[in-house]
Design a protein around this nucleic acid. Sequence first.
DNA 1: GTGAAAGCGCTAACAG
DNA 2: CTGTTAGCGCTTTCAC
Lengths: 335, 335
Amino acid sequence: MTNSKAVTGTDVARLAGVSKSAVSRAYNGGYVAPDVRVRIMEAARKLRFRPSPAARALSTRRSRLIGLAITALDNQFYPEMVDRLSERLAASGFRMVLFTTRGQADLEPMLDELLGYHLDGVILASTSFATRVASECRDAGIPVMMLVNVDPTGQIPGVTADNRLGAEAIAAHFMTCGYRTMAVINGLQESSASNERTRHFCNSLADHGLPLPHIISGEYSFAGTAEATRRLMALPGRPDAIFCTTDMMAIACLQTLGEYGVVPGRDIGVAGFDDAPIAQWPVFSLTTYAAPLTLMLETCVSNLIQAMSGNAPAAGTISLPGELRVRGSTRAPLV
Amino acid sequence: MTNSKAVTGTDVARLAGVSKSAVSRAYNGGYVAPDVRVRIMEAARKLRFRPSPAARALSTRRSRLIGLAITALDNQFYPEMVDRLSERLAASGFRMVLFTTRGQADLEPMLDELLGYHLDGVILASTSFATRVASECRDAGIPVMMLVNVDPTGQIPGVTADNRLGAEAIAAHFMTCGYRTMAVINGLQESSASNERTRHFCNSLADHGLPLPHIISGEYSFAGTAEATRRLMALPGRPDAIFCTTDMMAIACLQTLGEYGVVPGRDIGVAGFDDAPIAQWPVFSLTTYAAPLTLMLETCVSNLIQAMSGNAPAAGTISLPGELRVRGSTRAPLV
DNA sequence: GTGAAAGCGCTAACAG
DNA sequence: CTGTTAGCGCTTTCAC
C-alpha cells in the first residue's frame, strides 16, 4: 500500500529545496556542496527514498546485475562457491541472479533468458555446453567469464584451478604411495575440468612408465559413481587406487567401497579434486587437490568487472595453482 | 560492441511497418492481428530484438525479480532448496536474486539492498532475525514469505515443515526404540524451526512421563555440534539417544560419536530433521523427519505470487506435514 | 556548484 | 484492431 506513492528523487529534491539533478549527483558522487548534500540526504532519509534501479538502469544502460549460470548445486563444491561469489559481487555493488540448468535441454531457453535480462555480465560455472552460451553472450556484447569449466579452445576468458598441476600432484602422490594399478572415475564429456584432470593424470603416469589407468565415467552423480566403482571392483585386476575428478564423486566412491569391505587408505587409495568442505569430514578424510577458491573468485570477478568497463578484452583461460591435501583416504607414502 | 547499437522496439516497429505499441502488444499478449504479429516477430528475430527489462520495469513498476535472503549455504538442506526455488520461480517468469547473510551484522546493509532493489517479492529463508526484515519489507509494500524459519508471532506469512508433527514423530520413534536418556542438540536462539522442534520434542517426552532431555546448542555449525556432542558424552548419565534439530547437525554429531567408539544405531540413537540429500548416504543412514520440500516451495511461491497480485493479504504460518524416515542411525523398535 | 531539459525503451490509456 | 500521446524515475550534457 505504501507502494502506491513511491517516493522519487523529485520528492526529495522538493523537500530539500534543490533540483532533481542535485539529488542525482548526491547519490552518484558528483559535485555537490557539503551542506546541500547533507540537506538532500536528510530529506531522503526522512522520506525513506530509495533510487529506482530500473530507472537508473534505463538511463545508464547498466543493471548492476550479474548472471550466474550453474548446474544443479548438488556438487558439494558449488554451494560454497555461490555463497562467496555472491558476497564478492556484493562488495563491488553487484547482485547475482541465478540461472540453474539441468543439462542441455535447458540451454536454449536459458540462453534467451540470460540474454533477455540485459545483465551487465555473466559468469558461467555450468558444466554443459557452456562454450556455446558464452559465445552468444559475447556476440550480444555482454562480458562473460567461465568458471571451473572453461573453454577448451581458449576463445572465451575463464578461470579454473590448475588441472594439470592438480592431476600431476595426485599422480605423484599415488606413485609415492606405491600404488600400481590405478583407475580414474571422471565426469561428463562436456566438462573441461574433468577432461583435463583425466588427461593430465594419465600423461603423468605414462611419463613414469606406468600403464594407462582404467577410465570410467561417474557421470557427476552419486548413483553413477557408485555404479562405476562397482564396475571397477569387479575388474579382474582390481585397482589399488582411484582418482575421482571431483570430490563429490570421490565421496560417492568412498562410500561404495564400503560394500566390499575395502577400507580406503588401508586397502585402497582414493583421491578427489576441489577440496569441498565435506572432504575433510572425519568419515571421509579425503585426500584431494584443493582448488584455490578465493583466488579463483577474485580473479574471475575482477576480470569480469574489468571487461565490463570496456577495458581489456581479457585473455584466455587463467589456471590457478591449488594445493595437495593429503588425508586418510590414501596410505602413507613409502619411505 | 554490438551493444553500442542496442535494438529497440522502435526499430522493430519500423522494420515491421507498425507502431511501437503494436510491438509492445505483440510481446504482451495484447490484441494484434495474426499477420501483423507474424510480421513483428519476424522483424524482431531478424534484428535480434530483446525487450529491455529495465524499461519495462520502469513502466510497469514490476521487476519480475524475487529476492531470496538466506544464510550461508553450508546447511546441506539449502542448496537443494535454492536450486528448486529458482526453478519454480523461473516457471512463473520470475528470476531469483540472491542475498546471503552471515549473522546479524549483515542485516542492516542487506535490508537496504533488499529494499533498494525494488524486488517484486522477497523470500526469507534466513535464520537470523528475519522477522525484523520481514516487517520492514511489508512496510515498504513488498510482499514477503518466510520459509523454514517463520515468524513466531504469526504476523508475517510463512511456510514451514510441521515442526510439531516432526518432533513428535521423532520422540515417538525414540520411545518405541526403547531409548530412555535423551538429549537434544539444537541450533540458534533466533531460529524458530530449531526452537519449535526442541520444544515439541520435550513436550512429547513429558506427555509420556519421561524426564526432560538435556538440551545443548550445536550452533548450526559442524564445530559447534562436535563440541556439543563431546559435552553430551562427558555427562555422568550419557544419553542413549540424541535428537538434532537439523540433519546438518545430526551428521556432525554422528561423526563426532566416532571418537568415542560409539556406533550410531547400535550403541546410541541419532535422529535429524529435514532429510537433506546426504542423510541417506550409506555412511550416515540418518533417521530423520523429511520436510515436504516440494510442497513447501510450491506453497511458498504460489502464495507469494498471489500476494504480489495484490490479492489475499495472506495469513500466518502454514505448517506442512512431512514424513518420518527411519534409517540405520536409530535401532530397531522393540517389539 | 547547480538547474533545465532531453532522453533511456517500454507500457498504457485514449482515440480512431 | 492499431496508432498517438504521455509518462515511469533517473542520469546527463549544457548553460548559467
